[in-house]
Write a protein that binds this DNA or RNA. Sequence first.
DNA 1: ATAAACTACGTGTATATACATGTATTAAAA
DNA 2: TTTTAATACATGTATATACACGTAGTTTAT
Lengths: 152, 152
Amino acid sequence: MKLEEAIKSVNFKNETHKAGLNILYTAWWLKTSMSRELKDFGLTHEQYNVLRILKGKSPEEMCVKDIAGRMIEKSSNVPRIIDRLVIKKLVKRSTDLTDKRHTVMSLTQAGLTILDLSTKKINGLFDTLIEVGDTDAAKLNELLELVRANET
Amino acid sequence: MKLEEAIKSVNFKNETHKAGLNILYTAWWLKTSMSRELKDFGLTHEQYNVLRILKGKSPEEMCVKDIAGRMIEKSSNVPRIIDRLVIKKLVKRSTDLTDKRHTVMSLTQAGLTILDLSTKKINGLFDTLIEVGDTDAAKLNELLELVRANET
DNA sequence: ATAAACTACGTGTATATACATGTATTAAAA
DNA sequence: TTTTAATACATGTATATACACGTAGTTTAT
């Protein structure tokens, strides 16, 4: 669906403003699609992100700060997301003995299993949903980097 | 900041997967920047969206459903966002007498004023923050539409 | 060695998202 | 006409976001 239909608006200040709204809408659209896939596994979008990050270092443990620095949405409250994952026994949490301020996390076997299954689903979603060629995808990445070129 | 640094990840499955993450991250980045501007006015991102939508039809009244259909993030709980705007006296809410299931909303004078001020700020942000030329912005819009070409 | 500053994390509050359910009103069907 | 279904919205619960603040542990400075 075109952006104009999606938000029932036709008057954009200029192409750049439209691009801003288009980025926001497309991200919402993508997140919604991902959440639908993850629902079968009882995972939220953010819980999946944390599991993916832990997998990246597995079997090494990671502290909250390291995880937070790798999240797509930086303002997430990582300790509380982990709370839910610990309750579901997908993540193990303990205190780092070399620096007791650190709480360290690692995937459990159940966490690894559910991550593998859900990753297959998400990868499949990306492949079938986003059907842009490699060249277009690369161009898109280039333009998004350009959008973010000015630091905040 | 490059996506690779932002989420401290270098191994993407392919350019399309990277583009997906890039869209999600760029949207978060943009929302964060907008929220910072809106904070001065005591408005959240979503409250601003609702005010903008009401302005589009002003001085006509709009019902919840019409507003929801124009939101960028469709899953927002519009009645509750309006609750907060009514408390702040930026929006007036009443019942439509021709169909009592309809609750109709309109901007108050205070709502109009705060919207004008905050819109100036947001427009300025877009203009200074997103410094891509018109051609690049148009290309970006084209690619985002392509990403969303497959309906969910 | 002790005080001060910093760091990492947890907790609390307000708002928003996602989804299920309840309620009043209107429209449609038997 | 009475029942049934559909519609529009409100409300409730679990999770997440955004931000402020508290606390234990560590580092630095005096």
